[in-house]
Amino acid sequence: METSPSLAGPFALGTFSAAPGPASPGPASPGPAFSGPVFPGLVAGDRVLDLSAHGPTTRALLERWDDVLPLLHEAATSAGEWRPLAELRVHAPVEPRQILQSGANYRTHVIDLAVAHEPADGRPAERVRAEVAAMMDRRAAEDQPYVFIGLPSSVTGPYDDVVIPSWCTKPDWELELAAVIGRPAFRINPDKALEHVAAYTIANDVTAREVVFRRDMPEIGTDWLRAKNAPTFTPLGPYLVPAAFVGDPGELHVTLKLNGEVMQDESTKDMIFDVARLVSYVSRTVELLPGDLVLTGSPAGNGLHHGRLLRAGDVMEGTITGLGTQRNGCRDEG
Rank of each mutant, 00 (worst) to 15 (best):
Arg47Lys: 14
Ala86Phe: 05
Leu62Gln: 00
Asp50Thr: 08
Gly41Tyr: 02
Trp65Arg: 02
Gly36Trp: 09
Arg83Phe: 04
Val68Phe: 03
Ala76Phe: 11
Gly36His: 09
Val38Gln: 11
Val68Thr: 15
Glu74Gly: 11
Arg59Asp: 03
Glu63Gly: 15
Leu61Ile: 10
Pro37Leu: 09
Leu51Ile: 05
Ala44Tyr: 02
Leu61Ser: 08
Arg47Tyr: 06
Val48Met: 08
Asp46Glu: 15
Pro32Gln: 10
Leu51Gln: 00
Ala76Tyr: 12
Pro84Tyr: 04
Pro56Thr: 00
Pro32Asn: 04
Ala44Ile: 00
Ala79Arg: 14
Pro30Trp: 09
Arg47His: 14
Ser52Met: 10
Gly45Thr: 02
Gly41Val: 05
Ala44Asp: 01
Ser29Lys: 09
Ala76Met: 08
Leu85Ser: 02
Glu87Cys: 08
Thr58Arg: 02
Ser78Gln: 14
Leu62Met: 06
Ala53Thr: 14
Asp67Pro: 01
Ser52Pro: 11
Asp66Pro: 00
Pro40Phe: 02
Arg59Leu: 03
Gly36Phe: 07
Arg83His: 10
Leu62Asn: 00
Ser52Gln: 12
Leu49Arg: 14
Gly45Lys: 04
Ala86Ile: 06
Gly36Ala: 10
Leu42Ile: 06
Glu81Leu: 10
Asp66His: 04
Gly36Leu: 10
Leu85Val: 08
Leu51Phe: 01
Glu74Asn: 10
Glu87Pro: 02
Arg83Tyr: 05
Gly80Gln: 03
Leu51Glu: 03
Pro40Gly: 07
Pro84Ala: 02
Ser78Asp: 13
Arg64Asn: 15
Ala76Thr: 12
Arg47Leu: 14
Gly45Arg: 04
Thr77Trp: 02
Asp50Phe: 05
Ser78Gly: 14
Thr77Met: 03
Ser78Ala: 15
Asp67Gly: 15
Leu62Thr: 01
Asp46Ile: 01
Gly80Thr: 08
Ser52Trp: 12
Gly80Ile: 03
His73Lys: 08
Pro70Ile: 10
Val43Trp: 03
Ala79Cys: 03
Leu72Asp: 03
Ala53Leu: 12
Val48Gly: 05
Trp82Arg: 13
Trp82Leu: 05
Phe34Cys: 07
Leu42Tyr: 03
Glu87Ala: 14
Ala60Thr: 15
His54Leu: 15
Arg64Ile: 03
Ala86Gln: 13
Ala60His: 14
Arg47Glu: 14
Ser29Met: 11
Glu74Arg: 14
Arg83Gln: 15
Pro30Ala: 12
Gly45Ser: 06
